[in-house]
Each structure stands twice: as C-alpha cells, then as structure tokens.
Design a protein around this nucleic acid. Structure first.
Lengths: 296, 296
DNA sequence: CGGGTTCTGAAATTATCATTTCAGAGCGAT
DNA sequence: ATCGCTCTGAAATGATAATTTCAGAACCCG
C-alpha cells in the first residue's frame, strides 16, 4: 500500500516528541518547533524550504531538529506527519473541535477556556470605543499626573498596569494598598489629574471613598470594574466593565487584564516616538545595573 | 504566513474538480483519481513518485491530470490540497463574528482580541493535561510548602497567584522581588517543597540561579514561561508555556494569567471542603477587621 | 488488416529539495 | 578583553522530484 517502505513506527506523535524534547532544543529550533505546532500539521507538509522560510530559520536547522527528534531526516519526519494525519482523519471523531485536544470537554482547562472566551466576547461587545480612546487620550496627556490604585484582589492588576505605564510616561504613582496612607497621595493630586482605579466584586468601600474624595477635587476617574459595576462607576469619566465569570470559586481577571493591556498598547502606540526612546534608556539602565551588581 | 506565494485561489476543492471532470479523464487518469480519492487528501501529499506508484500509473500521468484539473503542475495541486486541509483543520470557532461590533477591525481592541484568542487556542493545544493535573496535585499537597517567585514583569502574576492560593492553603510564601533576600527563603525550603516560578522573555538570570539552587536541594519546580521557554524549563518538573504575542511593544500576559486561574481553580476544586471552610473564616476576619477599624 | 488517433510510460532532462560543510556569529566563563 | 564553546545559516554538494520528450502500445474504424 504505502509507496515507500514505512519509517519505523513511532509510539508518539511528532507534536509529542517536540513537546517532550522542547527543553533540549536550541533557540532557532524552538522557533521552528513553534511554527510547526502553530499550524499543525499542515505547515510541516510542504517542502523543507517552505517550512524553513515560514519559521524564519534555515533549512539546516530543520534537518538538525528532525534528527534530534529521532528521524533520519526531514522526509522521514514528514512521512510521520502524513501517517498521523491519515490516522486522525480516518478516526471517527475529529479531535479538532476541542480546545485542549486530548482532554475531555469537561476538564477544567476546557471549561475555563469556554468561560473566558465568552467573557471576552461579551465584554468587547459592550465596551465603548469612545470610552476606550478617551481613556487612552487622558493617559497619554503629560500635563496630567496619573495615580493607580487597586483593591485586595485587583492590586496585582494595578501593579501590572503601573509597571507598564511607567515605561511609557513619568508622573505616574502607584498608590500603596494600605488605605491609611491614601490622604498623603490625595494631597498631591491637582485638578485634571487622573486616578486609575480597579474595583471588582466585593467592592471596597475605601476605594469608593477615595474616588469620591478625588473626583470632588476635579480629578478624573478611569475605572476598571466588573459587569455589575462598582458603586464608584457613577463618578468615573471612563469605566470598563469586564465580565469576570469563571467555573471557579473566584472571579476571572483575565478579561480585565486584556483591557488593561489593550489600553497600554493604545497609549504606547500613540506616543511611540517618546516611548521608544524611554525603552532604549531603560535597557541601558538595566545593563548598568547588571554591571553594578557585580561590585556589590 | 504561507511559505510560497499562494496558488490562485480556487472555488472548488480538488476532489470536486476530479468529480466534475471525471468523464473527460482517461483510463490511467481515472485509476489515479480513484487512488487520490480513496485516501483523500493524504495520498496526494507525498511525492509525485509515491503517488504514481501507489496508483499504479506513471508520473507523467499524474502531471497530465494535474494540468487537466487546471493546475500548472503537480506541486500546485499539492499546495491546493494542503490549503484545503488547513481550512478544514483550523478552528471551528468563528473568528469573525466581529469582536467590538462598532469598531473597525483595525482598532487596537479588535487586533488585540484576535491575538489573544489565537494565543489561547495555541497554548491550550500544546498544554499537557498531565502536566497540568500533576502541578495541581503538587500544589494541593499540604505536606509540601509552596514558594512563589516572579520577575520584573511577572511579579504581578506571582502576586495574583499568591493571593488566591493563600485562601486555599497555608504553608505558602511569596518571595520578595529583591534577589538579595532569596537565600533566606532557600534556607527554609526542604526536599519535596514546591517553587512556583514565573519567567518570561527577558529571562532573568537570578530566577534561573534560584531554580538551579533549589532544584539541587530536591525542591520541585513549577514554571510559568512563554512559548520559547525559559532556560529554567529544563529544571522544571512541570512547566507551562503560554503564547504571549500581542500587537504591542510588550508581550501579553493574558494567557499566562488564564493558566494561573485555571490551575487555582483546579486546586480549589480538589480541596473544596477545606477551602470552603477557609473562605468562610476569611470572611469573618474581614468583618472583624472592618469593625476593628472603627475604633482606631 | 493497416492507418490514423489517442494514450501511456521509459528515459532524459530540468528543477527543486535535502543534506553536508564550514566560517563566523553569539555568548558564557575566566 | 580573550578564550572556548555552541549554535547558525550561506553556500556547495548530492539526492530526489517533476517535467518533457518520444517511441511504441492500445484502440478504433473502415
């Protein structure tokens, strides 16, 4: 039946092999491995040249990896892909309509994936583009200082936002978790400044009070909250309500983080020339820090 | 994306073409056509020689039929088969039921959404379920103490993970960012304990050294990294490689956070009876704290 | 049973692919 | 900064694949 003598039968798929030996792969090989896995197995079925180009590596790299994975050469790897494909196609159930292919639909990973994509879809549908663009505009305005505050759970998100924004602009302050210290920050805020607040279910009274205080002083409020909306939402100039449902005892922050990242990206894009310069400088500082450490 | 310039897009599949033109095929060509259809499309994905032999015809016959079907030659027919296959295999999830409906596809929100869902899809496809379940088992084992460490960017994720796990179990320590203090933590670790480390692109040398030190002392390493894999991955007992590509100057942590949340959910589910109790107690403590504050 | 026609595959040719070699890039250690 | 190592891709080589050519087989028809 088979045109050429079959390659030695393998107990695992090419994808499995790659996965198992991933750590022993080099930089270029990993790049290649990812390209193969990204569009599996089709990307591996063309010529070695095509695969190499699509992966951004050279053909020798492909050959070397094929050998590392236990094949005599690329054609043998390809033959393995074809025979896997044959097996997959003839099998009664198409595996591909699942998230994690080899896990049951009921596995927590798949259930979580369902929930998160649904959250994302619904959140995007109701997010106002103007709201989004408006918030981005506020955040890139260098005349306004920006303060960031989070709650018990959302503190991590505030921190993440802060770390990234810090690269984009100065005049940025992360407000410490302990609400006793908050008046100190308020003291510095001036009209037109921006408070970025995170407040999701189990809305925190302290955050609401802070929001009230600062908006009364003419500070703009950008709020990340959940689908039900923090009580602070009515004070916000711009608010983002992300859906946070998850098959878990806790809510999911994945979509909130998504909005945060998108917002950071928007600001970064709009201020690229300056941001680029700042990032370069930051790199240099890291290098110096590394050298510095040696002498400590 | 595609390795070579695409062949002209076709309105029908190769199989359709064969059916339509079957009448006009000659004896040898029909023989070939049947062989192709018999094991469609795999048999057409090998070399022309292999296909000819498997069909019992000569290679010129294959070339002639390819031309009769409207291709410039056999390789073009093969490319058509591959792209059909790709279309069949690729996600059944409707990509284009438009995300943010009223925004152009080019808006950063939509581009980000595309990227993130693609990241999620690909990450899930290559995550090992055993890897995941194994890590969850480690983390719920009360005999093991758990330490959590993050890098410059991933510190927020480590923090998020810590905050949630803290509700589930005791014996949990968040390692401070300053690597000077790390030996103090190592001092307390015992064999069988677990270090949960986050290390993504711009892999941090300190994290690697910590991983080396602790694994040498018999500590298990659970690693969250990116698709390229931190150098610490070779030391990890369980590692998760999340895709982090984004239309931004920075990588996206959304999928990493997804895995974190799913893992927390898995541990929580497996230990629900205890966790429930702990959550209730926590509520009480919050209430007391609130009352307490009134008297301050 | 020839003569014309169509079809077919062996063999030669050409094109492309796969592998090997090797110089130097990159990087960590000293 | 320099050494020594691993990794990488350009280029040369070798191997295979794809196409073309063409002679003869198969068929059709009078």
């Amino acid at each position: 039946m088979s045109p050429a003598p079959h390659p030695p039968p393998r107990d695992q798929t090419v994808a499995d092999s790659i996965h198992n030996r991933f750590q022993s792969l080099t930089r270029a090989e990993r790049q290649l491995a990812n390209a193969i896995l990204a569009n599996y197995p089709v990307s591996g079925l063309g010529s070695i040249t095509a695969l190499a180009e699509a992966s951004g590596v050279s053909t020798p790299t492909v050959v070397r990896m094929a050998k590392k994975l236990g094949f005599s050469g690329f054609p043998e790897l390809q033959a393995a892909l074809r025979s896997e494909l044959e097996a997959t196609i003839s099998s009664p159930i198409a595996k591909h309509d699942r998230w994690a292919g080899n896990a049951p639909d009921t596995h927590i990973l798949n259930r979580f994936a369902e929930a998160v994509t649904e959250n994302l879809r619904q959140t995007l549908r109701q997010i106002g583009i103007d709201e989004f663009d408006g918030a981005a505009a506020l955040l890139r305005d260098r005349k306004r200082d920006v303060y960031v505050v989070g709650g018990r759970i959302t503190r991590s998100l505030a921190d993440y936002f802060f770390t990234h924004m810090q690269v984009i602009r100065s005049g940025l302050t992360l407000i410490a978790p302990n609400s006793n210290t908050w008046p100190h920050y308020v003291l510095n805020m001036k009209e037109g400044d921006v408070l970025v607040a995170f407040d999701v279910r189990r809305y925190e009274h302290d955050v609401l009070r802070l929001a009230e205080t600062v908006t009364a002083r003419g500070v703009k409020l950008v709020l990340f909250t959940d689908q039900w909306g923090s009580p602070a939402a009515k004070l916000a100039t711009h608010s983002f309500r992300a859906r946070i449902e998850a098959p878990s005892a806790w809510d999911s922050s994945v979509v909130t983080l998504f909005v945060v990242e998108a917002l950071v990206a928007a600001v970064q894009t709009a201020t690229w020339s300056e941001t680029k310069e700042r990032m370069r400088t930051l790199e240099e500082l890291f290098d110096q820090a590394k050298i510095f450490r040696k002498f400590v």
